[in-house]
């Protein structure tokens, strides 16, 4: 392989029902390329390595600085964001696959709406009375902010769910990202007031008890969110919550 080209193997699927096929591409190398640049170069001239014209590759992307969460895919076997996947640091041929645990749309594009729906399920918000003027929010120490902010940086990419053996369409498990949001809102001085409702939402099918402690999630998170700590913290809250309920408190 000439050093001035980049080779990619991409798993294609024309639609939810279509069979998957692999296609290979070889494109000119440019310094500082990331996987997005490679996909764009292919889009300009979608021809496979053996010279066969093909369709444009569908994928999601928006911010290109790893803060929107859109461009998650499986790159050389690892779930990660395509924008921060620099070609110089990837072994070639670079293999690109869609996230497997979500319904297929087309090619590298999948339907991650379950993630957003699950945020609704667990009431991941602070229940404010209204937008009218009610003065400033509760005072918080810088230490509390330094605890909450990292939890709040979840970009809903779904990488932690992709690597979770428990996350599948059968059990309806909400997964680490959503449990982490429960921890975040249960920490907030006003958010706390909905603590019981959030914990209730995490009991029953798809709730926190589905977690099998594989601990893959925390390693897959591009934002270094302490997901296993979050699951442990919410589990502790859950024990107290369920005891409280059992004792009729």
């Amino acid at each position: 392989m000439p050093a001035n080209t980049v080779r990619l193997r991409i798993k294609r699927q024309a639609g939810p029902q279509a069979p998957p096929v692999w296609e290979e591409f070889e494109i000119p190398y440019r310094p500082h390329m990331n996987v997005i640049v490679a996909l764009r170069d292919i889009a300009e001239n979608p021809v496979t390595r053996d010279g066969r014209p093909t369709s444009t590759i569908a994928y999601e992307a928006n911010c290109l600085e790893e803060v929107c969460g859109a461009c998650a895919m499986v790159i050389n076997g690892r779930a990660r964001q395509a924008c921060t996947a620099l070609v110089d640091r990837l072994e070639q041929p670079i293999s690109l696959e869609p996230l497997h645990r979500f319904p297929m749309i087309r090619d590298l594009q999948v339907d991650r709406s379950k993630l957003f729906n699950d945020l609704r399920r667990v009431k991941a918000w602070v229940p404010i009375d209204g937008t009218y003027a009610l003065g400033s929010g509760p005072r918080q120490s810088p230490q509390d902010q330094e605890q909450a902010y990292p939890l709040s940086r979840c970009i809903s990419c779904g990488n932690c769910l992709e690597v979770c053996p428990q996350y599948n369409t059968r059990t309806d498990y909400v997964g680490a990202a959503v449990i982490n949001q429960v921890r975040l809102f249960n920490l907030h001085p006003t958010g706390k007031m909905h603590r019981a409702a959030r914990l209730d939402a995490l009991t029953g099918p798809g709730g926190i008890q589905e977690c099998g402690y594989a601990e893959n999630c925390v390693k897959a998170c591009p934002k270094d969110i302490p997901l296993t700590d979050s699951i442990a913290a919410v589990n502790r809250q859950m024990v107290g919550h369920l005891w409280g309920k059992a004792l009729g408190r």
């Binding site: 918000w125 602070v126 404010i128 937008t131 003027a133 009610l134 003065g135 400033s136 929010g137 005072r139 918080q140 120490s141 810088p142 509390d144 902010q145 909450a148 902010y149 709040s152 809102f185 907030h188 006003t190 958010g191």
Partner: peptide
Amino acid sequence: PGIIDLLDRMGVPFNRTPEGLL
């Protein structure tokens, strides 16, 4: 200023001073 208060009430983790203010 009212918009900041509202966002603060919604739980935006704004950086804080040692006194707990924004």
